[in-house]
């Protein structure tokens, strides 16, 4: 490896291409004893260019993936809206029960999610449905985790 000292001049520094070490070995250019640049054989430069994208991804700390809210089925939204609309009636007839709304009407009622979901499959197949527990106040689930995918406003 050859060391060249960079002279402190305003004119651009030029390297003599006839210098035997140019293109054969790495030349470190120093200013005040500190390395400021390197001249490498062209083939090595080409290799470095090819590796650059991979090196960039290695250097960058991996960013957590950003997830957009998942798409919402408009047919599901109709069933959800019906669940909200029918809430007073549901509270009167099925308090604390789990209810499935299918075709904007009560499609199944049961003691838990599993029972109601199975009843919907048996009766209607895989159709848009809203399944929820009938409560005075909506339950708040505790999920002490920093990342959830929120509803898009």
């Amino acid at each position: 490896m050859t060391r060249q000292t960079l002279r402190e001049v305003n004119a651009p520094y030029t390297v003599d291409p006839d210098d035997e070490s140019v293109g054969r070995e790495t030349i470190i250019i120093r200013k005040n004893g500190e390395p400021v640049a390197a001249i490498v054989p062209y083939a090595e430069y080409q290799e470095w260019l090819a590796l650059k994208p991979q090196l960039a991804s290695v250097r960058q700390p991996s960013e957590p993936p950003v997830y957009a809210p998942l798409p919402v089925d408009p047919e599901f939204e109709k069933q959800w809206a019906a669940f909200q609309r029918l809430r007073p009636e549901l509270l009167q007839n099925y308090p604390s029960q789990w209810v499935a709304i299918v075709n904007e009407q009560v499609g199944a009622v049961g003691p838990n999610f599993d029972a109601v979901a199975e009843a919907v499959y048996t009766k209607y197949g895989n159709v848009p449905r809203c399944i929820g527990q009938v409560r005075e106040q909506q339950r708040v689930y505790h999920f002490p985790y920093r990342k959830v995918i929120r509803r898009e406003n």
């Binding site: 919402v72 089925d73 599901f76 959800w80 708040v140 689930y141 505790h142 509803r151």
Partner: peptide, 9 residues
């Protein structure tokens, strides 16, 4: 299939 919107804390 989505079946509900939940409140999560």
């Amino acid at each position: 299939t989505q079946t509900h919107w939940l409140k999560v804390a």
